[in-house]
Amino acid sequence: MTDEVVRLENISKIYPLLSGDVLALNNISLSIKTGEFVAIIGPSGSGKSTLLNQLGCLDVPTSGDLKIGGKSITQMSDSELTHLRLIMIGFIFQKFNLLPLLSAYENVEYPYTLKYRKRDTSGRVTKLLDMVGINEDLAKHKPSELSGGQQQRVAIARSLVNNPKILLCDEPTGNLDSKTGVLVMNMLKKLNSKGKTLIIVTHDPGIAAQADRTITIRDGELVADVVNNQ
């Protein structure tokens, strides 16, 4: 039980709309262990992103209990959830989502500065950028001056800077050509092999096949949870 990093118990998420409530997640229970590589698949609108947002503490479920690193988040304040996102979770988005005003280097440094209230003098930022293949010259550029693949690599470096337990990726290769996509996937897999819990939402069966475990969502319900053996 000690290596369980995420635990969902009867999670439901309802969006109240004027036209009627939308049941985006329906009574989902599951447990994810430290170091696992989980792919979440399902048709469009099935609730994959909604589920990922709950895991990433961007939102709290309407009912049910959600534990991250053993702590229940359902009763946490916005400020506590925000802090949890800062220290426990690394986000990688389909649209990269780098901060346009900051250089690649500053983008990676940003969460570090928020957490430690100081600039990085340990060389951690440079090391991470180096690891994802962004050299010192490129690191000075603004996101708008980088290619999609370069931006996504900066985003990976950024997600790692505070040494999070969990990496959450929503279609991380969705905006990349297949060659760059493979490159990014290899990077994420390498991080997973070093012990990071990796949770990826994807439409790509090829990516899902690389995961340890595939969870299928349909109409907000968990319809399949398969361990891939190879």
Binding site: S79, T82, R85, I87, N97, L98, L101, P111
Partner: peptide
Amino acid sequence: IREIGVLRSIGTQKKE
């Protein structure tokens, strides 16, 4: 707005 979303998602507090 989108930038605010990014800032918030990666751990920026409301007051910041």
